[in-house]
Design a protein around this nucleic acid. Structure first.
Lengths: 338, 338
DNA sequence: TTGAAAGCGCTAACAT
DNA sequence: ATGTTAGCGCTTTCAA
């Protein structure tokens, strides 16, 4: 007789023996108690408690072909904006019976494709992707996997499957329109890392300034290097050197906006009179700064909550009322604009 | 004959048939190529490529009893300090064949216990826990699970298993000693959320001031409410009201330190002359602020890297040279202290 | 409503 | 070095 170790933990067969029923009845009592008579159900529940039985999720997945893991693919873990999204994701998933597995692309499309392949191989039940710039290979893999997919952060009317995000081009446009409405004319753009969302914010910036006949490439400073407050200060210095008559900066994120504010403070450049500043994300650190920084606010937490909600609805075979959501944004005027 | 759906994907049996070998040989060729003759190995590899075969990890786990998931339990996902730790964790895990599953306790010991039970049920191969204040029940569960465990963030010479962290009490002590050495005498403490690490920083603060004969409870302001820059400003206002003669603040984290700096700026309180500020974490936003904020720096990225390194070593049955690491801290003097 | 048998895809144990 | 068989713990299928 062959012998294998086993896990040492009680199995469904142990519970079945203890309760004097068939294994499958235990299985049903766990997954769909209504299907089992009250009497057996009680016996089974007592046996489960007595043995301290916990179903083995790996075996469940293998036998049923259904996994309870949702793959979540993000470009960064250190960027604070994804912390809020993750909080929403974890809050919404709780109690659903599903689990999150995180993948980190470090802003690489290739890495994203690798992660989608990995998650598909693990039979993830669904996937959440960041942005709308997946490679064709990635889209094929997702189609083959045949699982619900939701994209977040950005908006497009033609998502892979479902989507909840905002138009970063519109947001950039709105930021510049606001600066124009407050009388600024020489409006610069400052950006770092220049991921797809940054680029679209810049597109919005350009469109707004072109419409006003005020676009000047000399006012655009950006770098592929990672973002940060220190980088914001450096970019601000560059902008002031390149265009001394600049009177406002649209900063593609709040790190940069805070850096610009500090640099102007250090140079005693009056804010908002000589220099207006608009940031992006309306983080606590910019909203509570002195002077408080005007910025674009997006409900990132809600984005995570709704994205997971859509996936769970699909996994429950419910119709998803709105599979393509534009969450919108809000410009919050503060003290860095007049 | 019974029929089940199957996954539709090629299985190891398909590969074996295609290569005209036994299934177990394919299994070995994948896991331990050296065990298989070059000829068969080539045939198998060709068959794998032809069929586009990907092993099913669930089935591997079930058959071998070995999981490749490491459970990582953190108290928060929005707190930026854990972003850096996570980055280190993911960087180190890459290519190891293991995966991370994250649990979020929201600073609740009960939730931590629930997550440990969950991960143990999923047969996580190892676990990473935050802090050193796990409940007795949690420690029992971990002992029962019998998997490698590493604790991070804090230091104690008696960890559950392995540990890499720093002494927050020592760091708090050092911050106050530094302020004392710079001539500050009425040194306040400001803290929010007051998790175990915050409390230990406060213990260090108290010890240092008591040693100097300068401890005054009126100078301690803290709140269980979540931390943030806005909260830092509010705490600063409270401190100034409660003790107008305060001449320095040790802030239990950088959110608060930045808020204090802003509040003092708004009130035109000269920094560092009338008010010294020391923060905790030396984040980009405080290090690049104007004035730049003095603070305690801990290598959080490295903490994640080393913690996972220790787990991987144990999982590979290697001896772990140093299973209990004090990573140390550094006080970086900047412009908010004279 | 309940159960027996078969099998999910893979690997450990036992052979050769 | 390779193969055979049994079985990991669960659920599906079919039958009663």
């Amino acid at each position: 007789m062959r012998q294998r170790k086993g896990s040492g933990r009680p199995t469904i067969a142990d519970v079945a023996r203890e309760a004097d029923v068939g294994a499958i009845t235990v299985s049903r009592a766990i997954r769909n108690p209504g299907q089992v008579s009250a009497e057996l159900r009680e016996r089974i529940e007592a046996a489960i408690r007595r043995l301290n039985y916990v179903p083995d999720p790996q075996a469940q997945v293998l036998a049923s072909g259904r996994s309870n893991v949702i793959g979540v693919i993000l470009p960064s873990l250190t960027n604070i904006v994804f912390g809020d999204v993750l909080q929403g994701i974890y809050d919404r998933i709780e109690g659903s019976g599903f689990h999150i597995q995180i993948g980190n692309t470090r802003y690489s499309v290739d890495e994203e494709d690798r992660l989608v392949a990995l998650f598909a191989g693990q039979r993830a039940a669904a996937m959440l992707l960041t942005g709308i710039d997946q490679s064709a290979a990635t889209c094929n893999r997702l189609a083959e996997a045949g699982v619900p997919v939701v994209q977040i952060m950005e908006y497009t009317p033609r998502p892979i499957d479902m989507l909840v995000g905002v138009s970063h081009a519109d947001a950039g446009h709105a930021a510049v329109d606001y600066l124009l409405s407050r009388g600024y004319r020489r409006i610069g753009f400052l950006g770092a890392r220049m991921d797809p969302r940054m680029l679209r914010r810049r597109d919005g910036y350009r469109a707004a300034l072109r419409k006003a006949g005020l676009y000047d490439p000399a006012l655009e400073i950006s770098t592929p290097a990672p973002s940060g407050v220190a980088r914001g200060r450096a970019l601000c210095s560059q902008l002031l050197a390149a265009a001394p008559d600049v009177d406002a900066a649209f900063c593609a994120n709040d790190d940069i906006a805070l850096g610009v504010m500090f640099e102007c403070t250090a140079r005693a450049i009056p804010i908002p009179e000589r220099m207006g500043i608009v940031g992006f994300n309306d983080l606590d650190m910019t909203a509570s700064a002195v002077p408080a920084i005007t910025g674009i606010r997006v409900d990132r937490y809600q984005m995570g909550v709704r994205a997971i909600g859509m996936l769970l609805a699909r996994l429950a075979d419910d119709a998803v009322a709105e599979p393509c959501v534009d969450l919108g944004f809000e410009l919050i005027p503060r003290q860095t604009t007049r």
